[in-house]
């Protein structure tokens, strides 16, 4: 464990908590893409299957359970409790265009052709594009509530901090995983234009308005 990875995990946890609080407090999931949340749930379920087979550390196991539980709770709030506030019209990204390529790529490029490893690889590829429906929704509505932009900033920062973690681990432990690094770079790049808008607008108290 290093400071970058810890900061990344905490940023990830913060993002998930911000989202849950936003939906719970405002009793609305307006502006949130249910499709992205479905993809994140798939990411956690396919990646954290090793929860029952491999024990890494108490921290690792607890965080996996928290992420799976929080994503389940978010889906429940969005698709059951506050279903009426779900923005079906704007949340129209075709997630099969993300799922199918990730499955194919995981079958072609992986470390080991075993079920667990293919699922882990699929999960890594899927996570890198899972935010697209959310960014698509924000671009369609042209704006985002500031709480939603804080959520996106924390979520984007988590994988950016992981990039620093991978640099550190390569230098300190000569450990690297090209699949995770490649996907992490793609994932972080997808947030770049959002990061720009967040820093130039939201931090100045303005609403996140995408140029029409």
């Amino acid at each position: 464990m290093n400071i970058f990875r810890l900061a990344g995990d905490l940023s990830h946890l913060l993002a998930i908590i911000i989202l849950l609080l936003k939906i719970w407090k405002t009793r609305s999931c307006a502006g949130i893409s249910g499709k992205s949340q479905v993809l994140f749930a798939i990411v956690y379920l396919t990646r954290y299957l090793d929860l029952f087979t491999t024990y890494i550390s108490l921290y690792n196991s607890i965080m996996k359970i928290v992420f799976i539980a929080a994503s389940g709770a978010t889906l429940y709030l969005m698709y059951v409790k506050f279903k009426a506030t779900y923005d079906h019209n704007h949340d129209s990204f075709r997630i099969e265009f993300l799922l199918i390529p990730c499955v194919i790529l995981a079958l072609i490029i992986n470390h080991d052709f075993t079920v667990m490893e293919i699922l882990w690889t699929f999960s890594i590829y899927l996570e890198s594009v899972a935010i697209l429906p959310q960014l698509f929704l924000v671009s369609k509505t042209g704006e985002a509530e500031s709480i939603t932009s804080h959520y996106l900033f924390a979520l984007g920062s988590y994988r950016a901090l992981y990039l620093l973690n991978w640099i550190y681990r390569y230098m300190a432990e000569s450990h690297y995983d090209l699949i995770a690094i490649f996907a992490g770079v793609v994932q972080t790049i997808l947030y770049c234009d959002f990061f720009y808008l967040y820093i130039t607008k939201v931090l100045k108290g303005k609403k996140l308005q995408l140029p029409a």
């Binding site: 990875r5 995990d9 990830h12 990646r47 090793d50 491999t54 890494i56 690792n60 965080m63 996996k64 992420f67 470390h111 080991d112 882990w120 992981y162 973690n165 450990h175 690297y176 995983d177 090209l178 995770a180």
Partner: peptide, 10 residues
């Protein structure tokens, strides 16, 4: 390659 026993990151 970069084989290693298990994925220790979240």
């Amino acid at each position: 390659g970069d084989e290693f026993a298990k994925h220790d990151e979240l």
